[in-house]
Structures are given as structure tokens and as C-alpha cells.
Amino acid sequence: MARFAATYAPLAILALLWELVSRSGVVSQYALPPLSTILAAWGDLLADPDYYRNIVASVLRGLAGLSAALVLGIALGTSMATWRSVNLTIGPIVQLFYPLPKSALIPLTIIWFGIGDSSKVFLIFLGCFLPISTATFNGVRGVERTLIWSAASLGANGWARLRDVAVMAAIPDILAGVRTALALTFVLLVSSELLISNEGIGFLIRIYGDGSQYPKMFACTFTVMLLGFLADRCFRRLSGHLLRWRT
């Protein structure tokens, strides 16, 4: 109970301050609507099927891009760590593209894939692919050789050694990469939807902003925050489960 209070007291104080500042007229209510107004607007949205449709669209885009990056990133990272030739060929390309902010590619993805789902999924995939493949590469490279040798002497073939040992041993590193990728997913998802799209939570933020419906715009921003919070919780659950063998 005390812990509950300690966790949520700062949030309550922040909410109270927000309400007071907005109501007192220190700042314009357009710029910062009172929290109670925002919550009321959020209540309206919750009764609107369109709101859910847009959330689902965004979540599916995020999941699709992240999953594709996960599968291909682990495959590339493992290959680069295993075969020198792959590393020599792909390594420089990875290093070149790693520092590029992927949001700079938004216009290009629009030209290639249009304003619908594919441009967003592709952008998220691009953004998440490199952190995941780099983390996998480092993890697989660091696998103790005696683990691989043990598997070999127990009868595991090359493929089984990669799948059962190299990738499994790299899971702590891969998860660190996924954590970065998860944050990037939200950044890229919302920014690409804000710029050009026809649905999604970022799209809602934009049209409510353009239409001067600021309480609803704020409510949608809160929605993104909540989604991010939930995603982080899921990630922690998953990583706690996958790393349960560590004490």
C-alpha cells in the first residue's frame, strides 16, 4: 500500500499542478487544456469505434514492422557472426546505415509504398532491423566456444548448433536490442503517421490538432504514452521469462 502511494503520489501531484496551472489562466487553455477537460475528451473517444480502429491500425503496423525486424535481424546478426564472408560483405553497409535517423526516410517510404500500411511497416522494420541485428551479432560473437563444442559432441549439426546454442546464448544481448527497437517503433510509427497517413493514432493526433480539438489531441497523445507503457510491461514480462535461468 505504501509502495503504491509512493509510486503514484508524484503522478497525482503532477496532475494537480497541471489542472491548477491551466485553470488559473497562467497559460492559454488552448495550449494546455485542463486535465479534467482532456480526460472528459478521452471519455468521449472511448465511446467512439473510430478511436479503436485507429489504435488497432497503429498497433498492427508496429507489431508487423517489429516482428519482421526481429526475424530478419536475428538471422542477419547470427549469419554475420558465424560466417566471415557475410560479415565482410554486409558489415560496412550496416555501419553506414546505423547512424542514419530512419525518420529521414519517411518521404522515401511514401514514394515507394504510398501512404498506407506498407510505408509505415517498412519504416519501422528499417529502424528496428539494425539495432536487433547488431545486438544479435555481438551476442553470438560472444558465445563461449565450449558451449558450441559441447553441442557438437552431443551430436548437434551446424544448424542445430546455431539455433539451439548460439542464438539461445545471445538472448540477453538480443533482448537489449529489442528494447531499443521497441522505443524506436513508437517514434517511427507516430512520426510517420503524423506526417502522412490515413489512419492510426498519429493520424488522429494530427487531425485533432489541425481541427483545433486540443483536448482530444492530448487524449490521443496520452493514448500513445499508455501504449508505450503497456508495451514496456509486456517486454519486461517476456524478458523476465526468457532470462529466468539467470539468478
Binding site: E144, L147, W245
Partner: peptide, 20 residues
């Protein structure tokens, strides 16, 4: 010809699969 289950190996640092 390479490693095989005819030769079992035991290492100083055990080399157990820690996730199993």
C-alpha cells in the same frame, strides 16, 4: 572427422547450457 558423440567432452568450466 570433426566432433561426434563417440567422444564425449567434459570441460573445466562445465559448459552446461545455462538456459536449460
Amino acid at each position: 572427422a570433426g566432433p561426434g558423440p563417440d567422444r564425449g567432452v567434459v570441460f573445466q568450466q562445465f559448459a552446461l547450457f545455462p538456459w536449460k
